[in-house]
Simulated scan of single mutants.
Amino acid sequence: MYLQAEIAEQQGRFALDDVARGIGDKLVRRHPWVFAGTDDPDDMMGAWEAAKRAEKQRTSALDGIPSTLAALSRAAKVIARVRDVHLPVELVDEPIGADEVGEQILVLVQRAQASGIDADQATRDALRRFEDDVRRVETGPDSGEQGKN
């Protein structure tokens, strides 16, 4: 980053001080409970997501999640974002062990393959339907209210 800032400074575009100031401003803006003590730290992820959403002018909690992620990675990111912003979308909260997750995923892939189903595509299709549900909740009549997950 220093080399890029040095080249940019030589070209008269910006200086390393500008980069450092921008990073500092961004940290303060996105983490007011740390730097100003103004917000309730009980919901840090929700506050962080709200600040980021406003800053980037996002219209959905799902904006900014790369569509090119692998199906499981994208599903994990989408679900985490929905939890962080407390959208009133039905989510399973029952805990499960890491080994059991892996074993169940492998069994599902085996069953899908035995049935002639592409498990990755089926996951993407189910995730797309879930994302549609999330967007409907965001734009629905109670979209201003935050619910529990």
Results as ranks from 00 to 15, higher is better:
6 E>D: 05
7 I>N: 10
8 A>N: 02
8 A>L: 06
10 Q>H: 01
11 Q>S: 04
11 Q>I: 14
14 F>K: 00
17 D>S: 01
18 D>L: 01
20 A>M: 02
23 I>D: 00
23 I>F: 00
24 G>W: 00
26 K>Y: 08
30 R>I: 02
37 G>R: 04
39 D>C: 02
40 D>A: 01
42 D>P: 12
43 D>T: 04
45 M>A: 08
45 M>L: 07
46 G>S: 01
48 W>S: 09
51 A>D: 04
53 R>G: 08
54 A>V: 14
55 E>H: 06
56 K>V: 14
57 Q>F: 11
57 Q>G: 11
58 R>V: 10
60 S>T: 06
64 G>Q: 10
66 P>S: 02
68 T>C: 03
75 A>G: 11
76 A>Y: 08
77 K>T: 10
78 V>P: 04
80 A>C: 15
80 A>M: 14
81 R>V: 07
82 V>P: 12
82 V>Q: 09
84 D>E: 10
84 D>Y: 08
85 V>C: 04
85 V>L: 14
87 L>R: 02
91 L>C: 05
93 D>F: 06
93 D>L: 08
94 E>N: 06
94 E>T: 09
95 P>V: 02
97 G>N: 04
99 D>F: 02
101 V>D: 05
103 E>Y: 06
104 Q>D: 05
105 I>D: 09
106 L>S: 06
107 V>Y: 15
108 L>R: 04
108 L>E: 05
110 Q>V: 09
110 Q>F: 14
113 Q>W: 08
117 I>V: 14
119 A>T: 10
120 D>P: 03
120 D>I: 04
121 Q>M: 04
121 Q>E: 12
122 A>L: 07
124 R>L: 13
125 D>G: 11
128 R>D: 06
129 R>E: 15
130 F>H: 11
131 E>M: 09
136 R>Q: 05
136 R>F: 08
138 E>T: 01
139 T>F: 02
140 G>K: 01
141 P>C: 11
142 D>K: 15
142 D>E: 02
142 D>F: 12
143 S>Y: 11
143 S>V: 06
144 G>I: 01
146 Q>T: 14
146 Q>F: 13
